[in-house]
């Protein structure tokens, strides 16, 4: 049986159930690289060019950790997920980039997803990927359909039950609603930053332990994302802009006392998108916003200090409003 390796990085958190279903239906076995650790990051940093962003470095580290564990590594090039909405150039060239920096990687299984090119091109891309496992077009079609269904179920489950990708994918303990939370905050940003606890210095765990109930972009109803997007930027330009700008805009007006944006240092799209959210926060005035910049040098101390100060700010603000 063929084994496909999937790096636990970048788009893993968004599409894993879809990829898993697709490959399993076609008779392949799937392995996922272990969670990011110091060795993964060190490996990625030593290989990628300095200017590459942290998430891509982490991704390369994960590819390295899959060497010897699988027959192929799945590295999709996700160019666009909607008409006229584009992805960052590092995603466009991810298979080539991976080949260049990890030459000893198992053969790379790639697919180019470009929804902007229309359905026909999309079907063709999926078919040519599936054909490597089965020459029966019907089987590939069925696998693709089940994969899409798995994705829809995944998204719906997070949205309806208020779960994070980690809670669904890794069976992490489901929120105990009876536990006393004294504050609600939203954490927004790309899933590969929000859910990689090594990269973000256990941000979600720290908040949860501090009695903060955390909301994330996956829990926002589609209509909420769309409405906030329309209000802040009009039409999306970047793929996954909804996770940042849409979710940020939604939470600034719903459910939470503060929003924390998690961005990668040196990320062009992030710097633009978080700026939009910050401006929106300033305009609305009610809800506090803070962005945390992550890079490979980020000392934990800086993050902890900011987090503590942010929580203090919200709490002291509350006390004053409660008294006045």
């Amino acid at each position: 049986m063929v084994t496909i390796g999937i790096p636990r990085a970048l788009l893993y958190y968004q599409y894993y159930p879809m990829w898993l279903t697709f490959f399993q239906e076609l008779g392949a076995q799937v392995v996922v690289s272990p969670p990011t650790n110091r060795a993964t990051l060190a490996e990625g940093v030593s290989r990628a060019v300095a200017e590459t962003c942290l998430p891509v470095k982490v991704f390369c580290g994960h590819v390295v950790s899959l060497i010897g564990a699988c027959d192929y590594v799945f590295v999709p090039a996700i160019r666009s997920m909607a008409y006229k909405v584009h992805n960052c150039s590092k995603f466009l060239g991810l298979p080539d980039l991976t080949r260049a920096v990890v030459p000893e990687s198992p053969p790379i299984l790639e697919v180019e997803i470009d929804v902007d090119q229309g359905k026909r091109a999309l079907y063709q891309a999926i078919y040519s990927l599936g054909r490597r496992f089965s020459c029966n077009p019907l089987k590939v079609k069925r696998a693709a359909q089940s994969a899409w269904q798995a994705h829809q179920d995944y998204v719906a489950r997070m949205r309806s039950q208020g779960l994070t990708p980690l809670q669904v994918l890794e069976g992490q303990s489901i929120r105990d609603e009876t536990r006393g939370y004294h504050l609600s905050l939203a954490v927004i940003g790309h899933p590969y930053l929000v859910y990689d606890s090594f990269v973000n210095h256990r941000l979600l765990e720290r908040l949860d332990r501090g009695g903060v109930k955390v909301y994330t972009p996956e829990m926002v109803p589609q209509a909420g994302l769309d409405e906030a997007m329309a209000q802040i930027v009009g039409q999306a330009y970047w793929t996954y802009e909804a996770e940042v700008v849409g979710a940020g805009g939604y939470y600034l007006e719903n459910q939470v006392a503060g929003v924390i944006g998690v961005a990668a240092f040196g990320c062009g799209p992030d710097s633009l998108m978080f700026e939009m959210v910050e401006r929106r926060a300033k305009k609305l005035r009610g809800c506090s916003f803070m962005s945390l910049m992550l890079d490979e040098h980020t000392a934990e101390a800086g993050l902890v200090t900011r987090l503590e100060a942010f929580l203090d700010m919200i709490q002291r603000r509350r006390q004053v409003t409660a008294c006045g």
């Binding site: 980020t298 800086g302 200090t305 700010m313 002291r316 603000r317």
Partner: peptide
């Protein structure tokens, strides 16, 4: 603003 911290910033690396 009005005696309450509303925002802050800190140098990064």
């Amino acid at each position: 603003r009005q005696g309450v911290v509303t925002d802050f910033g800190m140098n990064t690396v």
